[in-house]
Amino acid sequence: MIPPHTSRVVEVKIPSELGYERVAREAAASVARRLGFSPERIEELKTAVAEACTNAIRHGSKSDARMKVVVVLTADDAKLDILVKDPGAGEAPPNQVIAPDIQAQIEGRSPTGGLGLWLIRQIVDQAYFEENEDGGHQFRMIIYRLTDDGQPASEDSHPVQANLENSNP
């Protein structure tokens, strides 16, 4: 029996090549299912993870498949902590995220781009870049499981234990 409040860590390493973000996305969804995330919340998580990995591939390692993007998923009873690390071979992460002005884009007054990071910020509970001792970039996202009344789960709930017991009789 797994005691409550025990973190579980899953690490996924993908080539820095567009398309492989799908692998990280599905891994995150699988972990979130075990945590008891709702299907809707899992869809949000999948979008956030895929966008973060796409940024790490395109901007953090210039889509060079010889490099790796590492995704560390740390699950506890209430939340999923997702760390996306890239080698830092590309441009520096942006200092601010600006909401997309679709009308300006359609009228040609504003370039497209930056939408992925903005979307992530709308979806997850916390998202920020961190210092990385290796010189690469490190982007952390935290997403809470929502309870039946739509509130973030507290540390007192133990759905992981229940799911594990159900799936491993």
Binding site: R22, A50, E51, T54, I102, I106, G108, T112
Partner: peptide
């Protein structure tokens, strides 16, 4: 099926043309 921000950007381009 999955749609990402690059896919949304494609659709914004289509919307621009359609207008």
């Amino acid at each position: 099926d999955y749609i990402n921000s690059a896919g949304i950007a494609i659709l914004i381009g289509i919307v621009t043309e359609a207008r």
